[in-house]
Amino acid sequence: MAEQVALSRTQVCGILREELFQGDAFHQSDTHIFIIMGASGDLAKKKIYPTIWWLFRDGLLPENTFIVGYARSRLTVADIRKQSEPFFKATPEEKLKLEDFFARNSYVAGQYDDAASYQRLNSHMNALHLGSQANRLFYLALPPTVYEAVTKNIHESCMSQIGWNRIIVEKPFGRDLQSSDRLSNHISSLFREDQIYRIDHYLGKEMVQNLMVLRFANRIFGPIWNRDNIACVILTFKEPFGTEGRGGYFDEFGIIRDVMQNHLLQMLCLVAMEKPASTNSDDVRDEKVKVLKCISEVQANNVVLGQYVGNPDGEGEATKGYLDDPTVPRGSTTATFAAVVLYVENERWDGVPFILRCGKALNERKAEVRLQFHDVAGDIFHQQCKRNELVIRVQPNEAVYTKMMTKKPGMFFNPEESELDLTYGNRYKNVKLPDAYERLILDVFCGSQMHFVRSDELREAWRIFTPLLHQIELEKPKPIPYIYGSRGPTEADELMKRVGFQYEGTYKWVNP
C-alpha cells in the first residue's frame, strides 16, 4: 500500500466541504435556525453545542446559521458558553472563530407547556436576519415526558411559513410498544414523516454505516452471507464503567431499553437485511423493517440478565456495585447486563442465532459485530482449526478484520490463527472521521433520513421486546451478580454456547 501524504486539518475539512456542497440537498446560502429545546441540560452542553461548534469551526454548516437555545432556566448566552465550552476542545488559535460562533447564538427562556412562551420564541426567531423565511431545525434534547406539549406548541407557534421545518427526537422513544405508539401517533398528527428525525446516534458511527458497503459492494461476501456458512452472529456493546452516581436515570430504563432495543437491534438489521433497491432512505429502511418483521418476540429462556457488584480487589469506582450508587433505588432489580438470542425467521437466516450482548462495568470498552462461520467440513488438521470470524469493530479503534487459519512457519503443516486486517487509523491517516452527532446533524440539514429511525421500524423493535420488558417488570427477577471489570455473568457464556457459538479464547485482536 502506497504511503499517504499527511494533510493538514484545513485540507481534510476542505475535502469534506467539497463532498457536502456538491450535493443538491445542502442549501449552503439559505438562512437556517437550529433550535435546541432543553438548552440547559446535560445532553445540550456535552453533545449538541459542542457538535454545532465543530461543524461551524470546520465550515460545514450553511453560511447563515443561527443557534437558539430554549429552556425553562433563566440563562444568558454567557451562561450557555460557560457550561458548554469546556466540552468544545477549542484551541487558543480558534479564539476569534469561537467569538464568531457565540455571536450567532441567542437564548430564550420559557415554559414547555405555555403557548405564550412559544409565541415569544417565534418572535425572537423572526427578528433574526431573514428569520421569518429561514429553515428551522428543532432538536428535542428533553425528557420524553414533555415531548407531547413541546411538539404541539412548536407546531402551533414556531413553524417557518416559507422555509422547511424538521424536528429531531432523542431516544428513548417511549418505554414499550404502547407508549411508543402513543408518542408516534401524537407526533405524526403534527408533522409529516419526512419532517421527523428520530435519532439513534449509533447509526451515525462510521463502521455501522460501513456495514452496507461491506455487504453490498464486495462480491466475495454475497455468496457466504447466509445460514449455510454463518453459524452465529454476535452483536456486542461493552462499557468498562458503571453508573457513577447517575444511576437514578438509568434505573428508569435499564440496559435493554438503553442499548439493546435500539443500538444493537439497528446493527442487527444492517447485518441481516436484503440488498435495498438503492441507497435512498426509504429503500434502506424498507429492508430493515422486513428483517424486524421476521423476528419473533424474545423468549425468556433465551435471556440472561445481570447486575454488577463491587470488586473487592478493585480501586475507586470498581469497588462499588450498582446498588451502592446513592441515586439507585434500594434493592433495585434493574439489569445492567443483558444477553438475548433472537432468530430472523426467513430463508437466508433460518436457524442462525443472533446474540445481542450489552452491559456496564465490564472488562473493556468495545462495540462490534462478529460473524462466526461454520467449521470446515472434512477436517484434515486433527481438530487444530478454529472457526473463521469476520469482525466489524465499531469502537474504539474502528477496524474490519477476518480471523482465519494460516500455516505456522516451519517444517510442518501446523495451522495457527491469524488475521486479515483493515484498521482505519492506519489505512486512512488523512481522513477526519466525523463524530456520530456531527454526521447525523449534517444529515438533518441535508434532509437525508437514511440513518434515522422510521415509525414502522420503531414499532417493530418495541413489538419484539415489550413482552419481555413487561414480564421483567411484573416478576422482578433478581439479576445474576457479576463482578465489576469482569466479562459479565458466566451464564451468558453458557447461553451463547448452547445456541452454537464457540468461544476459543486463544486469539485476541490487537490494534496495530
Rank of each mutant, 00 (worst) to 15 (best):
E19I: 15
D251F: 03
N226M: 06
E18W: 07
S157Q: 15
P62T: 07
R74F: 15
L140N: 05
G38W: 00
M37Y: 12
S123E: 15
F216I: 05
K82H: 12
N153Y: 14
S8F: 05
E244M: 15
G242S: 07
S117M: 10
W54R: 08
A134T: 14
K45R: 14
P240V: 08
P143C: 06
Y197A: 03
G204K: 02
E170H: 04
N64S: 10
C158P: 04
F56A: 00
S180G: 05
F191K: 03
W54V: 08
G163Q: 09
L20I: 14
N218D: 04
A78S: 15
A6I: 15
F138V: 09
R72W: 01
I33D: 02
K46G: 01
P92E: 10
D24Q: 05
S123W: 14
R182Q: 15
H186K: 12
R136N: 12
N218S: 00
K171E: 03
Q133T: 10
G23P: 11
A44N: 00
E99A: 09
A149W: 11
Y202A: 02
F173A: 05
S180V: 04
R57L: 07
V68F: 07
E99Y: 07
N185K: 13
A6M: 15
G163A: 11
E170L: 01
H27M: 12
N122W: 08
R72F: 03
S84N: 08
T145H: 06
P172W: 03
A6D: 15
R74Y: 14
S189M: 13
P144H: 02
E244P: 07
L235R: 02
G69S: 06
N105R: 03
E148C: 09
I52G: 00
V108Q: 09
D42A: 01
N165F: 10
A149S: 14
T65R: 04
A217H: 01
L43R: 02
Y197E: 03
Q83L: 13
S29K: 15
H186Q: 12
Y107R: 02
A141K: 04
L211V: 12
Q178P: 12
G59Y: 03
S40M: 03
H27V: 14
A134G: 11
V146F: 05
R104T: 05
F216H: 02
Y202M: 00
G163C: 10
F173S: 05
Y202D: 01
F88V: 06
E239I: 02
I255M: 12
E239Y: 00
M37K: 02
F34S: 05
K205C: 02
G59K: 09
G131N: 15
W54G: 08
M37V: 09
R198D: 04
T51Q: 11
T236A: 06
R72K: 04
K152R: 15
M125V: 13
S117K: 10
L142Y: 03
Q22G: 08
R81C: 08
S84A: 12
F66L: 12
L183T: 04
E148F: 08
V213P: 11
L16E: 15
A103F: 10
N126K: 11
G247Q: 05
L55K: 00
G41K: 04
K205E: 05
L98P: 01
S179H: 04
F21N: 13
A78T: 15
F216L: 03
W164P: 06
L60S: 03
R74I: 14
K46D: 02
R104I: 13
Q133I: 13
E94R: 01
N229D: 10
L130Y: 15
K46P: 03
E18G: 13
Q161E: 14
T51M: 10
R136S: 09
F241L: 05
M125A: 11
R219T: 09
V108S: 07
R175V: 06
G14N: 15
F253D: 03
F173G: 00
N64D: 11
K205L: 02
I220R: 01
I255N: 00
N218E: 07
G254E: 01
Q209S: 10
Q133V: 12
I52R: 03
P50I: 04
V68P: 03
N105D: 00
R215C: 03
A217R: 02
K95C: 10
I220V: 12
L177C: 08
A134H: 15
Q209M: 05
F66S: 08
N105I: 09
Y147H: 01
V68W: 03
Y249P: 03
E99R: 11
A141E: 01
L142S: 00
I199H: 04
N105P: 04
S73N: 06
T91N: 12
I199R: 04
D176A: 00
V208D: 04
A141P: 03
H201F: 04
S184V: 13
Y147K: 03
A231T: 08
V169S: 00
Y147G: 01
G14C: 14
L43S: 04
I196A: 02
T243Q: 02
L43P: 02
Y118H: 09
A6G: 14
A127E: 15
R166W: 00
I224D: 06
T76S: 12
S40H: 00
V68M: 08
K95M: 15
Q209G: 07
L235M: 15
A71M: 03
A2T: 15
I230M: 07
M125R: 04
T31M: 11
F237C: 13
Y139A: 06
S73I: 01
Q28V: 09
H27E: 15
L61G: 03
G69F: 02
Q119E: 14
V233I: 13
G38Y: 03
L128R: 11
G222R: 11
Y118Q: 05
K45P: 00
Y118M: 07
L55C: 10
G248I: 00
L98R: 04
N64W: 06
G254M: 00
G242L: 02
A90I: 12
F88E: 02
H201Q: 04
H201P: 01
E239T: 04
L211Y: 04
F102T: 02
G38P: 02
H129C: 13
M125Y: 04
I162T: 14
T31V: 14
S184P: 01
L190H: 11
M159L: 13
A115P: 08
R192F: 09
Q133K: 13
T10G: 08
Y107D: 03
N165D: 10
S117A: 14
I234C: 11
R246D: 03
I36A: 01
E99L: 07
F221A: 07
F173K: 04
V12D: 11
F34Y: 09
F101I: 03
H32D: 07
S40K: 04
Y118C: 06
T91E: 13
K45V: 07
I234P: 02
I67S: 01
I154Q: 02
K171V: 04
R74S: 14
S184N: 11
G131I: 08
D251A: 06
E148V: 10
I162Y: 12
Q178N: 13
E244A: 13
R57W: 02
R74N: 15
I168M: 09
S157W: 10
E156M: 12
A127M: 11
G174F: 01
A90L: 09
H186W: 08
R104V: 11
P50W: 02
T243K: 01
R17A: 15
G38H: 00
L7S: 15
I52Y: 06
K171S: 01
P86D: 09
S117R: 13
P62V: 00
W53R: 02
N210D: 10
I187N: 02
Q22T: 14
I168Y: 01
R182K: 15
L214Q: 10
K89G: 12
Q11Y: 14
K205H: 01
F66A: 08
F253C: 08
E244G: 08
Q133N: 13
S157L: 10
T151R: 00
L128N: 10
R81A: 09
Q11V: 15
R192L: 12
D181H: 06
N218I: 02
E170W: 04
Q11I: 14
V169L: 07
F253R: 03
N185W: 09
D114T: 14
Q195V: 05
Q119N: 15
